[in-house]
Nucleic acid binder design. Structure first.
Lengths: 352, 352
DNA sequence: CTGAAAGCGCTTACAG
DNA sequence: CTGAAAGCGCTTACAG
């Protein structure tokens, strides 16, 4: 039974290496100005002692403030989806504020590529240490990632991923699987001879997210016996009138549509149409726990909402940055959120 | 535009109150030995400055170690359910270790009241500052709560609640609503003329949790038109043979059982029976993401599992104690977990 | 009832 | 390339 060596910390390392704590600190943070020889000596001792720095002391002593930038869509008339990630971000913020971490938040308009690029520019013009971003537009995000790489700024994606862009982490849904789950849910109320409608309402015509969802959705039917016919429609105007016009035409052409799957949170527009046109026998599924959608869940027009823990995404995204930047701990490259099934019966517990 | 007053902290308070920081510290922590007069003076200044203590500095300076005790069921042959809360507890542990918080974990046997009481005694024999407990046995928990009240030790309940016991917080499911959701899920594959079976497999005969679930379950049918017949069975031996014997008899008596609802994680035993007796047309629903259950989800014997974020429960339970004890922040008395619906299609993302 | 002084485990100018 | 000293914002004996 050996007695634990109680000594530890920079002081002990300094004592053993026969240097001052300042030099130990230099090595600990890979700063210049230490001879290779002493550096090696100190590193060996660090390893031997399995030294774990006291982060509290470190942050207390350091005057350096760590700045995190957040770039996400603003909460709009159209959808309050981003309220949830934002609240997760705020929750993380209050937790890590103690460590001298400061957060700057930038909002862009989801219907306006330009505003996305603008906010990115604003962020990159300052000196930030890490960035949380919802990569809503692919080309602009690509450019953003290149800039970050050049400046060695770690960034985290939430809500949707662009895999080849070297983000520190992606925290959000596995969209393909999410579409697959959507298809499954649709079948509970679906007659085998009915047609299935995929509705894509978005101003961005070729959004990469929606196509992944759709692939997953179609895969479910391919995986199963006697697939139903699938019709797909793109609606690039998001207002009710436009949606209603498209759907009126579609339902006129196809008398036997039994179910509709909306690839995003605009499912409430479709719900409104189905209700107004007395077609609530059509099974309806879409995305996201937003006010308008919950109303239609409540009165049985929407069967299920699929959600991906938006609050958690915001919180975890921030914490991932905190982990690398402050705690210098490892971070998981890929954190897929659960694909949550929200119904009339369980929704009241969904948002904490 | 006024300039921010930069001075703050105990030093500034001391300066303004014309006392030493030691006295400010005494007031800050409600220690004795300060005259009412200076106390009031200091408190006024604290309010005026809206002083927020720097927890990092506080924990660094303080030699006091805060000890948290955890009392939960052990992971058994029978079920690995408690693996998840434990992993959440461990996650919290590593996070708050930085703050000088130490955790002691005590396991009891879910089939043995005695062991529960024993572990409680072990905990209360030491000097702990806060306790996280799964209140599995009601009388013993009542006694435990009384002891804690006497010693002013805050405690948090996870997994199930006993509302009148003045816990600092309850973090877990709303069981009534959970049963309600279970009933709803059961109806997806249920013929209107089929009977519904509620199965309660437990050595503890009158477990208060199960009856709440059952009430919620029955409420769903009452809320809806033409309720199906409901049969209920208690099985107090948890081994496969006993369960199979009971069920064989029941299914023999009732030819038209269309669905079964198991009130806890032992649903895999029923799944096994249904599979062995070629009755997989019976819709089956039960609780918890445990290994055995997932297998039957995979091969379509279990339709749905209901889960209540066990990992989160452990994590949040610990953090609630950390919030009061270390951060002296407020804690929500009641944190109902979402009632998650887990299927073959989405389960792979459920455990992070 | 109160204060001066040392210290928690780091980091940071500054001097050499 | 390296070290002595001060300091981050608190807490803790100890002395009076």
């Amino acid at each position: 039974m050996e007695k634990e060596n109680t000594a530890s910390g920079v002081k002990e390392i300094a004592r053993r290496a026969n240097v001052s704590t300042a030099t130990v600190d230099r090595v600990l943070h890979n700063r210049t100005g230490v001879s290779e020889k002493t550096k090696k000596r100190i590193n060996d001792i660090i390893k031997e002692l399995d030294y774990q720095p006291n982060i509290l002391a470190s942050r207390l002593a350091s005057k350096k403030i760590i700045t995190l930038a957040v770039i996400i869509p603003s909460v709009s008339e159209e959808t309050d989806f981003w309220l949830a990630p934002l609240s997760g971000i705020r929750r993380a913020e209050t937790e890590i504020k103690q460590y001298g971490v400061q957060t700057l938040t930038f909002f862009f308009d989801l219907n306006d590529k330009e505003s996305f690029a603008e906010q990115i520019k604003l962020v990159l013009d300052q000196d930030v240490h890490g960035i949380l971003i919802a990569p809503s537009f692919i080309e602009e995000t690509r450019e953003f990632a290149a800039q970050c790489a050049k400046r060695k700024i770690p960034f985290v994606f939430i809500d949707s991923d662009i895999p080849d862009l070297q983000s520190l982490s992606y925290i959000g849904p596995h969209l393909y699987k999410s579409g697959y789950v959507g298809a499954k849910l649709l079948t509970y109320r679906l007659q085998s001879d009915a047609k299935v409608l995929i509705i894509n309402i978005s101003k961005e015509t070729d959004n990469f997210n929606y196509s992944e969802i759709e692939e997953g959705f179609r895969a479910y039917f391919k995986d199963h016996v006697q697939p139903n016919d699938i019709i797909r429609v793109d609606i690039s105007e998001t207002d009710y009138q436009s949606v209603a016009r498209h759907l009126t035409y579609l339902f006129h052409l196809n008398k036997d549509i039994g179910a509709a799957f909306v690839t995003n949170s605009r499912v409430h527009t479709v719900a409104s149409f189905l209700k107004n046109s007395h077609r609530t026998h059509v099974s309806l599924i879409g995305y996201d726990f937003v006010k308008e959608n919950v109303g239609y869940l409540e009165n049985n027009v929407i069967d299920f909402l699929i959600c991906h823990r938006p609050e958690d995404q915001g919180y975890r995204g921030m914490m991932a940055l905190h982990q690398t930047l402050v705690m210098n701990a490892a971070v998981t490259r890929l954190s897929y959120m659960p694909i949550d099934i929200v119904t009339k019966e369980n929704y009241e517990f969904y948002q904490n």
